[in-house]
Every structure is written in C-alpha cells, then in structure tokens.
Amino acid sequence: MVPRRLPLAVALTASAALLLTACGSGDDKNGDKAAGAGKQGGNTASPNSSATKNASAGLPDFELPDDIKVDIEPSTTGDKAKDQILREQAEGLLARQRIFVDLDPTSGYLTRYYNGEARAFYVSEIKKAKADGRTITGTYRYYDRKVTQKSDDRAVVTYCEDQSKAFAKDIKTEKIKRTEPSPEDYTLITAVLRKTDHGTWLVQSFRGEESATECR
C-alpha cells in the first residue's frame, strides 16, 4: 500500500541506531506522503513564494516546482560558527526536497549536503520513489531549529518538521493523495553534522520522533 506520510527508517551512527525521517515506503497508517522524480536542472522548475522567502533570509533558491513550498523559520544565535551550521542545515532541507524532485542518486544537491548513513539512506529512498512513480507536493515547514551540541568538527541540530500540508503525487497522473492532518505529521528531528576539510557542514545521520508534543 502507498504510505500516508514520510515514515521513520533505521540507520546506524558510530555509537547507536538512529531513526531516520525521510520519504519512502511504510504501512498504511503512515499514509500517502512520499518522495518523487523529475529531471535535475530541468527548465520546468521555477521559483515559488517560499523559495523567494527563504532567499531573502540568505538561503539560495533551489528552483523547486511551484507546487512544492519549503518554509524554513530563520534562526540566528549571534555565534558566527553556530549560525553557519544553521544556515547550511537549512540549505540541506531545501536540497532534500530538490533531490526528491530530481531523483538522481548522484545529484550535487545530495553530495553537497549529505554524507555517510544519511546520504546512503536517501540514495535508497530515491531509487524506491523512482520505481514507484512517486513525487512530492505541498508545503514542508521547519521551525525551532537549535544547535544543541558543537565541537570543532561535529554538531547536533534539533528542529521540528510539519508535514500536515505535504502529500504524495503520482508522477504520470499527477493525482494527489491527500490525507487528513494528524499528530504523526509533526516530527522532532535530531541531526548530526560533520565539518569537512573545506569548512562546510554535511548531515551524517538523523533520527526522528513522530507525534512530538514539542512540535505542536
């Protein structure tokens, strides 16, 4: 059955098993929200109001289709290093939606912002979405973003995700699989990022807690 929303899947970190929140398959309780396909860099994609809003907050325009909006709450701390982490983590959230539009496992959007188990997980989910003929539509909202741990080359960022207005869409028919909002649409996510030799931050792994009261 087609999943209702983006489920939790398991990935391993160096010290423990973490639950990953992402597009993919799941039981019917988790419903019809899933990842999708398209052509990377295609001319059909155009900026939308959400992309413009995020660009005005200092984020690049990832040229998502008009029916996909990503609303990322700005977050600054006054600490230059932490603000860089939050900015690049926000860019990674935009990239996450773009890779499920492009469905290219070698996409530069994926390799720039994800590594390790997180990248491997998305590569797997991209292939599943392409095989199933699924794409995404609707609004993805991210808020309450905080750097909770930081060292020279490792950081932990927590944030909330709201998928109450995000849905799966059939690529061929463009039929949207709408679902009613539920507590499962609100997820508290903990992401582990690592700093590269070039000074940029990549997501290595992340876990999600569905129906999080902190996010509602």
Rank of each mutant, 00 (worst) to 15 (best):
K165V: 08
P3K: 00
I176T: 14
L93F: 14
R194D: 04
V157Q: 10
Y143I: 02
S25R: 15
A81T: 15
S49W: 10
E214Q: 10
D197V: 04
E88R: 10
P7R: 12
K82E: 15
P105I: 01
L193P: 00
A129P: 00
S211T: 05
A166V: 08
S49N: 13
L86R: 14
T76S: 14
R141G: 00
I68K: 03
P74W: 14
F206C: 00
A191F: 02
A34H: 09
R96M: 10
D162R: 07
T158N: 15
K69I: 03
A212G: 06
G133R: 00
K82V: 13
F167Q: 09
K169W: 01
A55P: 04
G42R: 12
V101F: 07
A34R: 09
C23E: 12
E117G: 02
G36Y: 00
L64Q: 06
A120V: 05
I72R: 05
N48M: 09
S15L: 10
G92E: 10
K82T: 14
A191P: 00
L202R: 01
T111D: 13
R4G: 03
I68F: 05
K150V: 14
S211A: 11
E210C: 01
R178K: 14
T148E: 10
G58I: 10
S211W: 03
A90F: 09
K127H: 04
R141W: 00
E73R: 13
T187P: 02
K150F: 11
D152H: 12
A16Y: 02
T44F: 09
A11G: 09
S56D: 15
I72K: 05
R87D: 15
N30A: 09
D162A: 11
Q163C: 10
L188F: 11
S151F: 13
G41I: 02
P47N: 12
T139R: 02
G199Y: 01
A57L: 12
A35I: 09
R4N: 07
I85L: 14
A16H: 03
R141F: 00
I176D: 04
N43M: 11
G36S: 03
T196Q: 04
A95F: 06
V123S: 03
I72W: 06
R216I: 07
W201F: 01
D104K: 13
I176K: 13
Q40I: 08
M1N: 10
V101W: 07
R87N: 15
D170M: 09
A191Y: 02
K53S: 15
F121V: 05
L103M: 08
A51E: 14
L188K: 12
P183S: 07
S25H: 14
D152C: 07
D197G: 08
A166F: 08
G78T: 15
L110I: 01
P181Q: 05
K39N: 03
A118I: 03
D71K: 09
G36I: 01
E214T: 12
K80M: 15
Q40Y: 08
A168Q: 10
K130L: 03
D144K: 08
Y113E: 04
Y143S: 08
V157P: 04
D71Q: 09
K39M: 05
A118Q: 06
T106G: 11
G36F: 00
E91Y: 08
T179G: 10
L18I: 06
L110Y: 00
K29I: 07
A212R: 02
E91I: 09
A90W: 08
